[in-house]
Nucleic acid binder design. Structure first.
Lengths: 188, 188
DNA sequence: TTTACTGTACCGTCCAGTCGGTAAAGTCAA
DNA sequence: TTGACTTTACCGACTGGACGGTACAGTAAA
């Protein structure tokens, strides 16, 4: 049973990662179920068994991204979302987690881009999460400075998303590091 | 003759603006030639007379955006692109022009999003322009601080593009204003 | 035999691009 | 100044292909 469950999750994960890959390879608008299925090594029927529609697939892509970010942050700075939670620690966790995510994989948000292209409403969970993080930064000792740092992170994300070619992982890592130092210094 | 030329440009402009509107209304992936034509008040055949393919249309949408930005900046800080040009004045011009563009119209970059969704290569001119601007900021007296400000602008753009709903024009204007002050203070 | 899962064949729709038109405006020779 | 021709701007029917989704048949493990 446990093996089966594992395989099941593996297939789903493989599909989700395939969606990312296809969106990156062919462009967000050319993400097709057949293409994703082929990339994941299964048939279209198999894909539709796991995700009953394209909409479900794209929503899952977004949800996976948000869940990853959220759980990674929870591990590093538990309770960061709470109004009385550890704001600075949470912000630093966001910088760490975000930086890692952006460096490790080849554009992890390409799938989200495809979801947005299909229907902007699909990325609502991402926007909600971003709002939470934005609020987190604004709870730091110096909200104005922290907010600028937050905007800068969004800028890096924007550049990585729109220009995956110039994906100097090195650069991104250094930038996030700089932002951490800047934040710590600015918040005293 | 001049009248004719004017009408011609008007139709093209109307089409380009219609593309923006459709991308915003239906989502970037649902930008169709028929839809754009209808929005512009002409037929699909008429549209294809002006832009011989969807690719041509989307490239034109991107080119128009870049041209607007570039000429507005040229007007405010002539020679900003040159390695020995006025860096700080150019950076401030970018903040002004970018802020205005983002505030005035209802998400002016929705069409570019559609172009990117169709083929990431289509937005190459935008990326090249952004690189120029990035270099501009790095020519400021304090390059590190200026670069952070630049990243923050990209963050604001990212937020506006992904979340056109929360398009508080007021907010965006204030943010760009803050960035201008920050830049001026930081550069001494 | 049931459950979980995979593969294949097919249908309907949407859409980019083609093509054969039309109508008005311009050009130009006689 | 008129008639012949070309150019510009635009229209709408059609086609061929891609794709989302359905139906169903198959398989392998429990």
């Amino acid at each position: 049973m446990s093996v089966k469950l594992l395989e099941k999750t593996d297939t789903k994960t493989r599909i989700l990662e395939a969606a990312n890959a296809i969106s990156l390879k062919l462009g967000p608008a050319h993400l097709s179920l057949e293409g994703v299925a082929a990339e994941a090594g299964i048939s279209k029927g198999g894909l539709l068994y796991h995700f009953p529609s394209k909409q479900a697939l794209l929503r899952a892509v977004v949800a996976r991204h948000v869940d990853t970010m959220r759980s990674d942050m929870d591990a590093m700075a538990p309770g960061w979302q709470r109004p009385d939670g550890p704001a600075l620690a949470g912000a630093l966790a966001y910088l760490t987690v975000g930086g890692q995510l952006l460096c490790q994989s080849e554009e992890p948000m390409a799938g989200c881009l495809a979801a947005m292209a299909e229907d902007p409403g699909f990325i609502a969970p991402m926007l909600a999460f971003r709002d939470e993080v934005s609020a987190l930064f604004r709870r730091c000792p110096d909200p104005a400075q922290a907010h600028m740092v937050f905007l800068a992170t969004q800028g890096i994300i924007h550049i990585c998303m729109t220009d995956p070619g110039s994906h100097g992982g090195q650069d991104v890592a250094r930038l996030f590091g700089d932002l951490q130092t800047l934040l710590v210094l600015g918040q005293g």
